[in-house]
Simulated scan of single mutants.
Amino acid sequence: MIFDIWKQIKAKQFSSLYLLYGPEAFLINETKQLLINHVLNEDGIDFNLSSYDLEETTIDAALEDAETFPFMGERRLIFLQNPVFLTAAKTKEKVEHNLAKLEAYLKEPSPYSIVVFSAPYEKLDERKKITKELKRKAAILEAKQLNEGELKAWIKERSAYNGVEIDAPAMDLLLSLAGTNLFTLTSEVDKLALYSGAEKKIDEESVEKLVSRSLEQNIFALIDKIVHRSIEDALRIYYDLLKQNEEPIKILSIITGQFRLIYQVKELARRGYGQQQIASHLKIHPFRIKLAAGQAKLFKDEELANIMKLLADADYQMKTGGMSKGLLIEMFLFRLNDHV
């Protein structure tokens, strides 16, 4: 649905009304930018682009603008931010909206304006008449968190937009290294496309070489070495982190968080939860749950319990000043070798 709407916008097949809603800010911002680029010409942007915050401005004022003829262009483009009247949220409204005016506009939208409702809410109140009417009339983009399949479709689409192809192993590695944040993924795909050369292909080798690693991703690599019993490699990564002036207490916190996740995934899977259910229960992206589930299979219950105890001991000593902070993680990794 996301890509369908974007294709229509790029083909200049516009709707008079758009409803963009959901918590994924990147998708909403990207859609807005596409509309600006394809609806307005450069000369008309200053005259025909408007944005209203409906927590501060009445819907009447915004719709008056929508009913005004465009100047130096064919259409007006009007963004209506934070339409709180579409939600069930109890808010202290600063303005009073004339929803009857909006209902009348929805029945007969201006032919020379495109009105975009931008609602950064998880859910809309489907019981409200105005919500039902808007959803019936508008082109809708639900900006929700993408699942693994949708993320891969996104990466493939973004690569194609840059005129390059990306293979499946490269996509898997990119998601592992860059995570699931769309702002980050877009930046990395654009960079990889720029360096793809004459072949116009992104492969696993180029991802390994060029994708930036956050502290969390470097520690993920460290944990991956631990779960595969490569303690020497884990120590090498840890020493590199120290050379980058990363704080041992932060490193320990992220290691602990990942092993806690592995433990939780293993326990919930034993209770019969599927990966999607676990992701929903823990409020963590399904792709991270999938990776943790794979890691959980490499540990027995008692091994994970011992690791959690070692981490708790290291955390206590780090906070009470019992030993050098840097040395504590090194000792944890050495002791871990005896337990895994």
Rank of each mutant, 00 (worst) to 15 (best):
L77R: 07
F26R: 04
K191G: 10
D240P: 01
P111E: 05
K300Q: 15
S16W: 02
K200L: 08
E232F: 12
D172H: 14
A88E: 14
G257F: 11
K135D: 10
G149N: 05
A66D: 05
M72G: 00
D338H: 12
V211T: 15
P83G: 09
A279V: 09
M1S: 00
V211R: 07
T320D: 02
G272F: 08
P83R: 07
I249L: 12
T91H: 04
N48V: 09
M1N: 01
P111W: 06
A198M: 08
E122P: 08
K243T: 14
A314T: 14
S51K: 12
G257K: 12
E74W: 01
L17K: 08
A143T: 01
Q295K: 15
G44W: 11
L215T: 09
T184K: 14
Y263D: 15
G197I: 04
K200N: 13
Y273R: 12
Q13P: 07
L282H: 09
Y112E: 12
L235N: 08
K7W: 00
R76E: 04
L40A: 11
L17Q: 06
H281N: 05
L182I: 04
G257Y: 10
D190H: 02
S50E: 06
A168P: 07
Y273V: 04
A138I: 01
S50I: 02
L261E: 03
G73A: 03
K300T: 15
R236F: 12
E150P: 04
S253T: 07
D224K: 13
